[in-house]
């Protein structure tokens, strides 16, 4: 069944079961592989995108629920890696393997949209994505740096 999604400012048509999680529509049907599969149960946050400006875990959202809403993925954050969050992530050299970092950055985008000056506690609450490489201390610092750069 075909339906339309608005992703990174573009209307795209998808021919898939609308109950398919948004994550797999992005990855398999649209070949937008920047958004990652990690746990599939709404826990690790590797699949985080923003929907209408709020961070959302795309593994747990049927694509049908995203119809008519504004979806932004890591690929759409900026055309040239100049979003404040990307700049902060680069400046603090946050990633190691990098697999979780798209989700981390999108979670940061969602956090900063509703809280431009988050405290450590705010960051820990909102940024509970998993990073097995253990980049958490830098993530916290990078969110604060991004808040300054916005």
């Amino acid at each position: 069944m075909a339906f339309e999604l608005k992703i990174n400012g573009k209307q795209v048509s998808v021919d898939a079961d609308p109950q398919t999680p948004l994550l797999w529509v992005l990855r398999d049907h649209l070949q937008m592989t920047g958004t990652k599969y990690g746990c599939g149960i709404n826990q690790c946050g590797a699949c985080t995108v923003t929907i209408d400006g709020q961070a959302a875990r795309s593994c747990n959202i049927p694509a049908a629920q995203a119809v008519g809403r504004t979806i932004v993925t890591i690929e759409g954050l900026s055309p040239d890696r100049t979003h404040a969050v990307q700049k902060a992530w680069a400046e603090l050299d946050v990633p190691q393997c990098g697999y979780c970092q798209a989700g981390q950055m999108m979670a940061a985008v969602g956090l900063l949209a509703r809280n431009p000056n988050p405290t450590d506690a705010d960051i820990d609450q909102a940024m509970n994505n998993l990073c097995r490489c253990g980049t958490y201390v830098r993530i916290r610092a990078a969110v604060k740096r991004a808040a300054e750069l916005v």
Binding site: M32, T33, G34, T35, T73, I74, E75, L77, S78, R81, Q86, W89, A90, D93, P95, G98, Q101, A102, M105
Partner: peptide, 12 residues
């Protein structure tokens, strides 16, 4: 910094 940092930053 790691060479692949830019590719991680934009999901590519």
């Amino acid at each position: 910094k790691r060479l692949n940092l830019p590719l991680i930053l934009d999901g590519s």
